[in-house]
Computed example of a mutant assay.
Amino acid sequence: MTSEDVLNEFRAVGALREGHFVLSSGLHSPVFLQKNLVFMDGARCERLCRALAHKITAAIGPVDVAISPAVGGIIPGYETARHLGVPSMYVEREGGTFKLRRGFQIEPGQKVVMVEDIVTTGLSSRECIAAIQAAGGEVVAAACIVDRSGGRADVGVPLIALATLDVPAYAANALPPELAALPVEDPGSRRLGKQA
């Protein structure tokens, strides 16, 4: 599956949006990938995650477990794990820090692939990887459906992306005039609990 094939899956459901968006990272961008419109379609999600699983296996060989960050990574993490034939787990925030909870445990020596949905700066991926390592896991790679950093995001381990885009993202105080002129949308969920 090519990057264009992946983008076509997003376009087919109106999930590749243009305008002025605040991303989960807090950066502003003229492009937003509404991945939940893609993941809500079981067949579409299955196609993408099967292709990602094949790409993971081709790049690093077999793994023992797939672990994702909650909430956005749970669906693609589960579906990718299913195609890898391994258990799926996720980390979630407790006191502001990602941790394995709900009885999830990593056995000593297990090879872990961290599976994300969309990578922009790599922050949540790095936080997830740190939590996996703190729990004793050996993270052999990270994987995502879309790397929108153009390959620049450093997650601390090799990053396997099904599609790579080079989409600009700007700090709020460094917006180009054409983006600043557009109304801002904040479609993500990271800041929902922080709003009044």
Rank of each mutant, 00 (worst) to 15 (best):
L192W: 03
E92C: 09
R148E: 05
P183H: 04
E178L: 00
Q110D: 02
V140C: 04
V139R: 06
G188H: 14
R82Y: 08
L33A: 11
S24M: 02
F104H: 09
E107T: 10
S3V: 02
E46Q: 13
V146E: 10
A141T: 06
V13A: 07
D186K: 15
L16S: 06
R148K: 13
Q105C: 03
A196G: 10
E116K: 02
A51L: 07
A43D: 13
V112A: 03
I106L: 14
S68L: 11
G73T: 11
E138L: 13
L182Q: 15
A134V: 03
A169L: 07
Q105Y: 07
A135K: 05
A81D: 00
V71I: 15
P76W: 09
A196E: 14
E18F: 01
F10H: 00
G19H: 06
G95L: 11
E9V: 08
C128N: 13
R102F: 03
I56M: 06
Q34W: 05
C128E: 06
G137K: 10
S29M: 01
Y90P: 00
R101I: 02
L123V: 09
V91E: 03
A163H: 13
R148G: 11
R11P: 03
D41E: 13
E116P: 04
S149E: 03
I67T: 10
L16F: 15
M1T: 11
V155A: 04
L7T: 05
G151Q: 04
Y170K: 09
G14T: 08
E127I: 01
V38S: 10
E92T: 03
G193K: 13
R101V: 12
T57V: 12
C144P: 01
P177G: 07
G72T: 10
P187W: 10
G19T: 09
C144W: 09
S189E: 13
I118C: 01
P62F: 09
L100N: 11
L175H: 10
I67C: 09
A181Q: 07
A174V: 00
G73L: 14
G77Y: 08
V146D: 06
S3N: 03
G19I: 10
A70F: 04
V157K: 00
V22R: 15
L123H: 10
A196R: 14
A163I: 06
V155C: 03
S3T: 15
A135T: 03
P158E: 08
A172L: 07
G109P: 13
E18V: 01
A134W: 02
I60Y: 01
C144I: 07
A59D: 02
I56S: 05
A180H: 08
A169Y: 11
K55W: 00
A135D: 07
P108C: 05
Q195V: 15
A134E: 15
Q195F: 12
Q133F: 01
I132D: 09
L192E: 07
L192P: 00
R11T: 02
Q195E: 13
E46P: 00
E9N: 12
G26N: 04
M114E: 14
A53H: 06
A134T: 02
L159R: 06
R152V: 09
L33N: 11
V91A: 08
H54L: 14
A70V: 10
G193M: 14
A58L: 12
A53M: 05
L175A: 05
L23C: 12
V38T: 11
V112I: 14
R47N: 04
M40Q: 14
M1S: 11
R148T: 08
P69Y: 09
G156F: 06
A141P: 01
V115N: 09
M114I: 02
Q110G: 08
V13C: 13
